[in-house]
Design a protein around this nucleic acid. Structure first.
Lengths: 348, 348
DNA sequence: TTTTAACACGAAAACGTTTTCGTGACTTTC
DNA sequence: GAAAGTCACGAAAACGTTTTCGTGTTAAAA
């Protein structure tokens, strides 16, 4: 077990000073060709690599990006990470992750851990609990200390920072319009409680589409799910609710759901009730995950381009990190990623 | 934008030395109660937190674990990360991730990046390309430099280190036995090329189960997929192959697939050919992912307990990191995570 | 009163870099 | 032959900690 070699050791071996070694390796003009060659050869032989930690301390930058997300076992979030990682690595940054598990306190703790020198900036999506509590002090404190934040997907206007969001409103609207164009007369919405910003926006898109086509929204066609329940238990309860939705609205011929799972459940219930998808009822989901693609029938969805979101977020963050002086002239941008409707078998 | 406060600044403000501040904050007996109180109050007021980078440099340990995986957009791998993160955080470690994208060179580069001081040890699963090339020098070099590695899932006997693996052989065997018990007479196997160790083991489990039940294996029932093709293109080609499998083997009544996707495709093809699952043909997959649960009919699978693998890997690594002297008495263990057959609707 | 012990604190080294500045030995120039 | 300039290198500071050891002051012991 030989420890990694350091400048000091090279210096001692070659009987020169540490400064000389450092300069020789960086090809400084101050050092003679002879010495350079000698040092570089030696360094190569022993596979010298500068210690990142020492560099971080010296440069006061770590070239590492911190990501905080509610949950990694989620196609959307892992796809975002994938995008971040792609451009981060391309530009010489590492990625370190923290999971909040949708918990406010874990989000705070995790951010504090990473903010103490481990990273240069954050890319994050808020936990549901944070959205519910509306307590954003940790974000603002982090930024006050000069550490930039880029938020994605779940954002909030109270926090001033760069943001990357999905065009939830128009995505939902386009989806519902698609259903209308396809002849649906009675379209249900399966969504989340309003404190989840994206759920709220998608609900608004649904309403707007109906309104523009002179279809008055009906309360009994809208199902707002409280996701704070346990995930598993919740699925069964949800299935019951959807079943009731179908039973109370026999003329139901279209469903727009704000995520994949809800959409799949709707298809499942429909099939159980003897309804054919897409002939009797058409279904559209949100988020282009792996479920939609492999479902039977495969699910028409609004694609969020999660990877592109991650890439964009990383670009925004790194640009800010590398801008000469991000001092007072704080100007924040919000990038909107447009959605695409991916048509599959669950619509005509 | 006020920078994070340091010991030096506190010292200057309170007109004491840096050492005194440091000791006061760590409640050293060397410092008088008065001074301690004063310093601690001041530190609290300014929300002082020690700089992690400086600590890392001083202690020569980062309390950070590096994870290298082939792909994060994968239920199995993200579940493993989730497990690692859980125990890592509980024991005071951070997690930093690197993606190899199944590429040998990216794996090497990523490991080199992280090995230069950023982390204390690795948890990794090898890329397919590495398995194919059988070049393991980067693992061995990393370990020679005193940085422990724990491998999971895709392992190889040539590298001596702690390992966490799934009982692929018995998992597959149990699955096939289940099909046999359920009355299947002609069971197909959809697997990967043999260089993927897990694919190979699962294939062996399949063969063993057949043999023990005096059912001679038939070459025409075994489909070995070359995954090096592009993912999308590959799916369509695969679907064709599976279709041929069914057509050439009209008596086919059972399918064991080494992953979810293959199993779902088999179900899809079966349905298209007018076969009912599970009445005409029963299907079992491997990996308990989100697809299996939400498929229709839902898929019986062999669960790998990915999260538990991650937890176990993290425990192994941290134990090694914190064992006083891991010097010469290198003793490596291999933990086998047993599989469970999760029965759902795709089997009788 | 002198010696010793306890107390409270500071100086400095160390972790591994990079970079600024200083300096001794030559070489060139008039 | 003296002044100036060039060359090649080293010393030291800095990044933010922790820890060892030294030291001055005061109180207790002789």
């Amino acid at each position: 077990m030989k420890r990694k070699i350091t400048l000091k050791q090279i210096a001692r071996e070659l009987d020169v000073s540490i400064s000389t070694v450092s300069k020789a390796l960086r090809n400084s003009a101050e050092i003679s060709e002879d010495t350079k060659q000698k040092v570089q050869a030696f360094a190569k032989l022993y596979n010298y690599r500068p210690n990142n930690i020492a560099l971080s301390l010296k440069n006061r930058r770590t070239n590492t990006i911190g990501i905080i997300i509610p949950e990694i076992v989620h196609h959307f979030f892992s796809k975002v990470i994938s995008g971040v990682e792609l451009v981060a690595n391309k530009r010489g940054y590492n990625v370190i992750i923290g999971l909040s598990n949708e918990s406010f306190s874990k989000e705070v703790i995790n951010m504090e851990m990473l903010a103490n020198g481990s990273i240069d900036g954050f890319i994050l999506s808020m936990s549901k609990e944070t959205l519910k509590l509306q307590d954003y002090h940790h974000f603002n404190e982090t930024m006050t200390q000069g550490m930039p934040i880029v938020m994605f997907d779940r954002v909030v206007s109270e926090v001033k920072c760069d943001k990357v969001i999905v065009d939830d409103f128009n995505g939902a609207k386009k989806a519902v319009e698609k259903l209308i164009d396809n002849g649906c007369k009675s379209i249900a919405l399966i969504t989340t409680k309003d404190y989840v910003s994206v759920g709220k926006l998608r609900t608004q898109g649904y309403l707007e589409a109906l309104e523009e086509h002179q279809m008055p929204p009906k309360a009994e066609l809208i199902l707002k799910i409280d996701e704070s329940l346990d995930y598993e238990a919740h699925l069964e309860a949800l299935e019951k609710e959807i079943e009731q939705l179908f039973q109370f609205n026999p003329k139901l011929d279209g469903v727009f759901a704000v995520n994949e799972i809800y959409a799949l459940l709707a298809m499942k219930v429909a099939r159980r009730l003897g309804l054919d998808v897409p002939n009797d009822v058409q279904v559209i989901g949100f988020t282009d995950g792996v479920l939609s693609k492999h479902a039977t029938p495969s699910l028409t969805t609004v694609s969020q381009h999660a990877q592109r979101m991650g890439e964009k977020a990383a670009e925004l963050l790194i640009n800010k990190l590398e801008s000469e002086f991000n001092s007072a002239d704080e100007v924040f941008q919000t990038v909107v990623i447009t959605t695409d409707l991916i048509e599959r078998e669950s619509t005509k």
